[in-house]
Amino acid sequence: MIEHVNQLCGQPPHIGPPPTDSTPIVWAWSTSSETLGGHPVNTAAAILDTNERTRAERMIKPADRHRYLASHLGLRIILGAYTNLPPQHIRLTREDCPTCGGPHGRPSTPDSPLHFNLSHSGDLAYLALATRPTGIDVELTPTPQTVTDILHTLHPTETDELTSLPEDQRPQALARVWTRKEAILKATGHGLAEGLTHPYVGSHPTPAAIPGYTLTDLPAPDHYTAALATANPAE
Rank of each mutant, 00 (worst) to 15 (best):
M1P: 12
E3M: 06
L8V: 01
C9F: 12
G10E: 15
I15L: 08
T31P: 10
T31E: 03
G38Y: 07
D49E: 05
R53G: 12
E57R: 14
M59T: 13
M59V: 08
K61S: 15
P62H: 13
H72V: 03
L73N: 09
L75N: 03
R76G: 02
I78P: 05
A81F: 04
L85A: 12
H89D: 15
T93N: 03
R94Q: 13
C97M: 04
P113F: 01
L114G: 02
G122H: 10
D123R: 12
A128W: 00
T131A: 07
I136W: 06
V147N: 10
T148S: 15
D149Y: 09
I150L: 15
I150W: 15
H152G: 07
T153H: 15
T153I: 07
T159E: 07
L162Y: 11
T163Q: 13
L165H: 10
D168K: 05
A173H: 09
V177K: 03
W178C: 00
T179I: 03
R180Q: 00
L185R: 05
T188K: 00
G189Y: 00
G191M: 02
G191W: 04
G191P: 08
A193Q: 12
T197Q: 15
G202W: 12
I210P: 11
Y213N: 06
T216V: 11
D217P: 08
D217N: 09
L218G: 10
P221A: 04
P221V: 05
H223P: 07
Y224N: 08
A227V: 06
L228P: 11
L228C: 12
A234C: 08
